[in-house]
Amino acid sequence: MVTDAAVVVAALSTASALWLWTGPTTATTRLAKLTADHREPRWRSLPGLFTRQSPGRRAQAWRLASIELCQALSAELSAGRTPGEALTRAVAAVDFPDPAALRPIVAAARDGGDVAAALLASAPPQGGEGLRQLAACWDVSVTVGAGLAALVERVASTLRAAQAHRQDVAAQLAGPRTTARMLAALPALGLLMAAALNMHPLDFLLGSLPGFACLVTGIILDACGLWWTSRMAARAQG
């Protein structure tokens, strides 16, 4: 029995080492994320699929679109167009996750309405930071008379820096996330190895009350560990 236990421990250690050796490194993950920024976002080429995206991916899409909007608006203003015309052209040039949400902004910019209020109303709760900052810039420009182009360019620079920080944090968290998934899968691997060694672990787990209690407790603890790791990673990414 001691020899069998030693074999199981050795097998688990070998599997863990192979996982860590072949798993993605932080540098590899960061390189993939940086190169992915130059590819066309998936939600643009598959608009029907976007509605099934997670809230995190939807917020990410809004952030990227907001950066593009600020860059396009800054370019239009630098070309000498009026703020309303520049915003209308900039919105038309950017593929937003929900184009219908931008219609009040275009209407306000075209008809001389309250653009700042329209930007605030159209900004989603998650991922709408760029639109809210752009609304503040528009309000300051209208109220104080400050140069809108300079304000928009500063907002675009801030949004780009924040996006780069989120990507860096996500790359740094890739290793811990992979380790957490590996640790969550190790109990199942242990059961398979025990069964291969003719230890009949399922007979104990499913055939007796103490074994079933151990099984339920293990599953709950495993799920809680994954949930807690995911929550900490989400908080770290902001």
Results as ranks from 00 to 15, higher is better:
residue 105 I to H: 00
residue 82 T to K: 09
residue 213 A to I: 08
residue 231 R to W: 11
residue 6 A to F: 11
residue 50 F to E: 06
residue 77 L to A: 02
residue 41 P to N: 13
residue 224 C to W: 11
residue 51 T to C: 12
residue 114 D to G: 08
residue 158 T to C: 08
residue 229 T to V: 13
residue 45 S to I: 14
residue 129 E to W: 05
residue 179 T to A: 10
residue 189 L to D: 00
residue 59 A to R: 01
residue 64 L to G: 08
residue 192 L to Y: 06
residue 228 W to V: 15
residue 154 R to F: 05
residue 110 R to K: 11
residue 9 V to A: 12
residue 82 T to D: 11
residue 221 L to S: 06
residue 139 D to I: 13
residue 108 A to M: 02
residue 155 V to C: 05
residue 46 L to Y: 15
residue 226 L to K: 03
residue 71 Q to R: 15
residue 121 A to S: 14
residue 91 V to Y: 01
residue 149 A to Y: 00
residue 169 V to C: 01
residue 218 G to Y: 02
residue 191 L to M: 01
residue 178 T to Q: 10
residue 151 L to N: 04
residue 4 D to W: 08
residue 167 Q to Y: 14
residue 214 C to T: 12
residue 183 L to N: 04
residue 103 R to C: 09
residue 199 M to C: 09
residue 69 L to Y: 01
residue 167 Q to M: 14
residue 63 R to W: 05
residue 127 G to N: 00
residue 45 S to N: 14
residue 95 D to K: 08
residue 206 L to K: 08
residue 62 W to F: 00
residue 131 L to A: 05
residue 74 S to V: 09
residue 103 R to A: 14
residue 128 G to Y: 02
residue 22 T to N: 12
residue 87 L to G: 03
residue 238 G to F: 01
residue 134 L to N: 03
residue 173 L to Q: 08
residue 52 R to Y: 11
residue 55 P to D: 07
residue 104 P to Q: 05
residue 38 H to L: 15
residue 155 V to L: 02
residue 68 E to G: 10
residue 26 T to N: 09
residue 195 A to C: 08
residue 13 S to A: 15
residue 219 I to Y: 01
residue 99 P to M: 05
residue 101 A to K: 08
residue 141 S to H: 03
residue 87 L to P: 02
residue 75 A to K: 04
residue 195 A to G: 10
residue 157 S to N: 13
residue 117 A to S: 08
residue 237 Q to T: 10
residue 38 H to T: 15
residue 142 V to L: 09
residue 140 V to Q: 05
residue 188 A to W: 04
residue 176 P to R: 00
residue 161 A to D: 10
residue 67 I to A: 02
residue 167 Q to S: 14
residue 23 G to A: 06
residue 123 A to N: 02
residue 40 E to R: 14
residue 215 L to S: 03
residue 101 A to W: 04
residue 159 L to W: 01
residue 14 T to R: 09
residue 218 G to W: 03
residue 231 R to K: 14
residue 155 V to Y: 00
residue 13 S to P: 06
residue 210 P to N: 07
residue 235 R to M: 09
residue 181 R to F: 12
residue 176 P to T: 01
residue 177 R to P: 00
residue 11 A to K: 03
residue 153 E to F: 07
residue 165 H to R: 15
residue 148 L to E: 00
residue 237 Q to C: 10
residue 197 L to Q: 03
residue 168 D to M: 11
residue 155 V to E: 00
residue 163 Q to V: 09
residue 4 D to M: 11
residue 118 A to D: 00
residue 139 D to W: 08
residue 230 S to P: 11
residue 96 F to I: 06
residue 135 A to Q: 06
residue 94 V to F: 03
residue 193 M to G: 07
residue 7 V to N: 06
residue 136 A to E: 12
residue 149 A to D: 04
residue 52 R to G: 12
residue 96 F to L: 05
residue 66 S to A: 13
residue 80 G to F: 06
residue 114 D to W: 02
residue 22 T to W: 14
residue 71 Q to K: 13
residue 78 S to K: 14
residue 36 A to V: 07
residue 183 L to C: 02
residue 77 L to N: 01
residue 197 L to I: 09
residue 51 T to R: 15
residue 229 T to Q: 07
residue 110 R to Q: 10
residue 153 E to N: 14
